[in-house]
Nucleic acid binder design. Structure first.
Length: 687
RNA sequence: GCCAGUUUAGCUCAGUGGUAGAGCAGCUCAUUCGUAAUGAGCAGGUCGUCGGUUCAAGCCCGACAACUGGCUCCA
């Protein structure tokens, strides 16, 4: 499975953990880290020339990175596990040995480190790399179990026999020290627990995770389809039932944003090249954008350009002659002040013409170039620019569910969570510095309001700031503005009492940002929403407003997307609710089921259906003669939120029997009460 | 993009070189029932695509594509 093998968010590189952090390793982590050493021992018995890099414990197990000519596949796992069992049965102690750096380098050169014995000619190259990462003055230690000797700061369990239960799970490629350009190693993943019971429980949990997988539930419930053959990978089609989710979310966003003073706009999915050159996204992000759409020029446009080119060429050649004439004159009569000026001017004009000519030639060659938008901000900036703005217009909050296209690498696509076409709950707030704190506060409150509606209890805001050394490179060179905006954001976060962590050197190039991480019910972690401050791009587009003092000023811009994209947010909600959506969101809200197909009964049931439909409730009817238990089973499988099961007794008493997908039979209640309750639950968006 | 694995009916899967199978879903007919599955019948597949080996390929080999799990990336 997925997330469980990922390193924990705050420890992506456990090998760089400080010794203090290491001492804090839990018993389970010690077991897993020890299992990694046992794994290495086993691999060496089978392939003695294997070279090892790092083997830390991770969230749900451990791995060890190995360089080996043999390609390890899951078919090799049983024999590796066999060797591991032998090492565990031998119950060797994990012996800690303190060495000097010289000794460690020597043992790397001889191939002893990360091996069962000396391996002449087979240098422990990755261990040398790891040694270099150990700061001078820090103690260098080995750990040894049986013949296996490894550079390691520990800690470990006492003996290999303390590893209660383990299993190898999968193999993947990984880059040495996470560097894409570095050597690629084979990463063998496994998991280990104190005992067999805990191991079995873990695999049960994995099964549960698979059951809740949004791709599986999405197919079962008919929410979305990904048609790679005709539409393309990463471009989901929203089926009717999935579209219900999309539109309910949009409705929620529109209501919330309307109440918060936003105005809605709509923009095209394409823009000319100039747009992204100006915003700074081209060429830096060109790789993540779909390639340009090139429009060839028609004959009329070509003729017009050719005419202009000819005219320019003529002017340039005339100026050339003039310049030569002047230069000839200089040779004969010496240089006068006047000539000097004339010469400079002509050359300047010639350069100017040449530039125009180059532009025309390029235009002739490239035609018109359009890009699918990968973000909405530039379009919104042009909306800001479309009409003159006064300070009285600010803050201006432009909102749009904008469709963007990003050419994500094929290996990164993942169901609805990582796609190439996405619908963003986007808005850009243009405001003055004085208005900033209040606006940012309001945005945060909106996040919290949404979390409450969806019952998200486990979330974390990740506040990404700049780093001084990146100024002018990774970040716009405005040290004071960085400090000012970061202070403002930090203040808001602290005042709101929000759970957040601050991470340096991860800001956007135009300002600090806050990413919201959430964990789905099965423990998968996602960045679901983003909130960014931009004090750079509005200036690039020359956006200004007329201030009280009658001067033009550039506004600050807040980019915010509290519901992220429909794709990721719905993918997340599917797993969060395991497909059992609350009534307001459920694609199938109500199904009216009759006990049989008696005419009078159907007439009574139809009355209820009609009343609910008239109130915009998504209600279906199942009045067929099929045994009603089968009809209930069908409704349950479809995850219909509320089933109204009606028989002759109900009809006579003017009641309906309610059954909830999440809660079973609720007994009979008066018809009017049931209808009123359904409508209220939807209106209030009850959980 | 990189490494490993996978791809057979709408879905879940069986099928180790000799004429493509099951369950569920679908359609037709019968069934008239008090809270999770009534029965019978019908229909559904160029076995991901292209190429190769073979008398014979779903099965063996190769290339490509998509998907899955990781790695890298994620404005």
């Amino acid at each position: 499975m997925s997330a469980e093998q990922q390193p924990t968010p705050d420890a992506p590189n456990p090998e760089r953990k400080s010794l203090d952090d290491r001492a804090k390793m839990t018993e389970l982590e010690r077991i897993r880290h020890s299992a990694a050493h046992v794994l290495a021992t086993a691999i060496l018995r089978l392939w003695p020339d294997a070279q090892f890099a790092a083997g830390p414990p991770v969230e749900n197990g451990f791995y060890y990175d190995v360089d080996l000519a043999h390609r390890i596949s899951p078919e090799d796992f049983p024999k590796i596990e066999e060797e591991m069992k032998k090492e565990i049965k031998a119950n060797n102690t994990f012996e800690r040995i303190v060495v000097t750096r010289e000794q460690a380098l020597q043992d790397s050169a001889s191939g002893r480190l990360g091996g069962l014995a000396e391996r002449p000619g087979n240098v422990s190259k990755f261990k040398i790399g790891n040694l270099e990462a150990i700061p001078a003055g820090e103690e260098i230690t080995y750990y040894r179990n049986g013949d296996f000797l490894d550079l390691c700061a520990g800690p470990h369990v006492m003996r290999t026999g303390n590893i209660g239960a383990f299993k190898l799970t999968h193999v993947a490629a990984a880059y040495y020290k996470g560097d894409e350009k570095g050597p690629q190693l084979q990463r063998i993943y496994g998991t280990a627990f104190k005992n067999k019971t805990a191991l079995d429980e873990y695999f049960k949990m994995i099964e549960e995770a698979k059951r809740r997988d949004h791709r599986k539930i999405g197919a079962e419930m008919g929410l979305f389809a990904i048609d790679t053959e005709f539409v393309g990978p990463g471009m989901p089609l929203w089926l009717p039932k999935g579209t219900v989710l999309v539109e309910e979310l949009e409705k929620l966003a529109k209501e919330t944003e309307f109440a918060a003073g936003y105005v809605r706009v709509r923009t095209p999915h394409l823009a000319r090249e100039k747009m992204y050159k100006t915003s700074g996204h081209l060429p830096y992000y060109a790789d993540s954008m779909f390639p340009a759409i090139k429009l060839a020029l028609d004959e009329k446009q070509l003729a017009e350009i050719d005419r202009k080119i000819k005219g320019l060429e003529k002017k340039i050649s005339e100026l050339d002659t003039d310049i030569h004439n002047i230069e000839d004159k200089k040779v004969v009569s010496g240089i006068t002040e006047e000539d000097e000026e004339g010469l400079g001017e002509d050359e300047f004009r010639e350069g100017n013409f040449q530039q125009q000519l180059d532009k025309l030639m390029a235009a002739r060659e490239n035609g018109d170039r359009y890009y699918l938008k990968a973000m909405n901000c530039p379009h919104h900036h042009r909306i800001f620019a479309a009409e003159p703005k006064s300070y009285r217009d600010l803050p201006l909050r432009l909102a749009e569910y904008g469709t963007c296209y990003r050419y994500e690498q094929s290996g990164e696509l993942f169901g609805l969570m990582r796609v190439r076409s996405l619908n963003m709950n986007d808005a850009h707030i243009y405001c003055t510095e004085e208005q900033f704190a209040e606006e940012f506060h309001a945005v945060n409150d909106m996040y919290l309001k949404y979390f409450k509606i969806f019952g998200l209890e486990k979330y974390q805001m990740r506040f990404s700031t700049h780093a001084a050394e990146g100024l002018g490179k990774k970040y716009v060179n405005e040290p004071e503005l960085w400090k000012k905006t970061e202070d403002m954001v930090r203040k808001v976060l602290i005042e709101s009492g929000i759970n957040y962590v601050e991470v340096a050197n991860e800001a956007a190039f135009y300002g600090p940002k806050i990413d919201v991480q959430v964990w789905s019910a099965i423990g998968r972690e996602f960045t679901i929403a983003t909130n960014q401050v931009d004090f750079a791009v509005p200036a690039k587009f020359g956006l200004t407003y007329r201030d009280k003092d009658n001067t033009n000023k550039t506004p600050l811009c807040i980019h915010r997307a509290p519901l992220g994209t429909h794709e990721r947010f719905i993918g997340f909600l599917i797993e969060h609710y395991a497909g059992n959506f609350p009534l307001w969101l459920a694609p199938d809200q109500v199904r009216v089921i009759t006990l049989n197909d008696d005419e009078a009964l159907i007439a009574y049931a139809k009355g209820i259906v009609n009343e609910l439909r008239a109130n915009m409730v998504r209600v279906e009817s199942d009045f067929s003669a099929t045994p009603f238990k089968a009809k209930i089973a069908d409704a349950e499988k479809t995850r219909v939120h509320t089933m109204l099961v009606i028989g002759g007794r109900d009809m006579e008493a003017g009641v309906v029997s309610v059954r909830l997908h999440h809660g079973g039979p609720q007994g009979a209640k008066p018809k009017a009460e049931v209808v009123a309750d359904i409508l209220a639950s939807i209106k209030e968006r009850r959980a």
